[in-house]
Design a protein around this nucleic acid. Sequence first.
DNA 1: AATATATTGTGAAATCCATCACAAAATATT
DNA 2: AATATTTTGTGATGGATTTCACAATATATT
Lengths: 234, 234
Amino acid sequence: MTSSPHFHILIEKIFSINVTAEELKSIPEPSLRRLPVYLQYLQNARETGKTEISTTLIARDLRLDPTQVRKDLAYTGIIGKPKIGYNIDILINSIEDYLNWNNLSDAFLAGAGNLGLALLGFEQFTKYGIKIVALFDNDGRKIDREVKGVPVLPVEKMASLAKRMHIHIGIITVPASSAQSVAEQMVAGGIKAIWNFAPKMLKLPEEIIVENAQFATSLAVLTRKLAESLKMVE
Amino acid sequence: MTSSPHFHILIEKIFSINVTAEELKSIPEPSLRRLPVYLQYLQNARETGKTEISTTLIARDLRLDPTQVRKDLAYTGIIGKPKIGYNIDILINSIEDYLNWNNLSDAFLAGAGNLGLALLGFEQFTKYGIKIVALFDNDGRKIDREVKGVPVLPVEKMASLAKRMHIHIGIITVPASSAQSVAEQMVAGGIKAIWNFAPKMLKLPEEIIVENAQFATSLAVLTRKLAESLKMVE
DNA sequence: AATATATTGTGAAATCCATCACAAAATATT
DNA sequence: AATATTTTGTGATGGATTTCACAATATATT
């Protein structure tokens, strides 16, 4: 009967109805941003040997509201059991699926400096659905070498190679001064989404997706909270 | 007369009334997170020779609502001129003051790997109110050297040195596996705020301020938007 | 000098997100 | 078997943030 709370979800699964772009959009951005946090927490929890977990516990450990956690997780389509909670393995899978992190996407990374290498070396990176297949740099000493099995190529080759390899994601870790130019070359190569670590706002066509990994943003919150807490003490 | 819209702000300035913790708290967190974005945008704008700027223009370039920009900037106490906008220099100063980024705070950085060095090399860093005064690492080959004029010391010395130097801010760029232990040593040294780049949730006393600079968070938004846009095309 | 235009600043309305309250469900306990 | 307990799922409520609407104001134009 339609009394099941998951009736419509079941129907979708049974008939393999594709989730449309409209539905995809429906998650609030704050919820979306919390999903990776849950993921990490759950991976830690799994390592301790747990197999089930409740939102009550997740919320306590992450200092969130249990209902909020439940609603966030519900966006991924996961179904829990009253009195028990969720199966950790299934929950992890559900989140990864929702984020599309189970399908690895190839990506180009421009800027083989410390930050670029840090990202490349970040093993858990493939867990986040991204595989860096080539590095690009302008420094002749770096070019034509390999770093962790990934070739370093000159920036001029980026656009044509991106086209040929149908790359959709570009990561920018070059200095602010060359970020705009590198971004434009990525766009010329057909790249659709750019993850920008350079402290510079990029001006690109509207249809290009840009996420700025602004260090400064979280630092603002930190310094602000610290100033508050120091004020309170004195 | 009290008809001036900024009467209370003027009064505060004239009598140097300190902003209290209560008032400090009053900015919405979303607004706080946007302030560094404005700052960067304004610094770029200044370099082009502009001296005045309107929220209309800022909003257009950053794809925000003009009223939102106006209200955000108002939290810093800035006052604009109808038909003209804001003086860029004064506006930049106003934001920096509000974030307390004009007063440099000393900080310790644990983890002299690629990511740590990337942060250290980030010249604009001092613009964000933080000065890294020592690096800590466990790798004997790195210890007792200097990187960009900053000494690299063994992690065991961190707590006692933090106490002696009254350090309040710690930055963690060690691997996830040692993040918790390093964080605890920071707390033991009296550090009050931790900026955590390790992909690991830290369990620390409630009074410690922790900001997680989660790469994964912005990546989730990116991959999600990309999946949406690819759905729409097909 | 008068009028037009662009912008600020802000109260009001609308939207979005988080939290509350509680029925339904699954297990544990008596 | 009945009762107690814990948790899920969700409609309703409350609060926070964004957007709207518009008066006030400074400059530009006629």
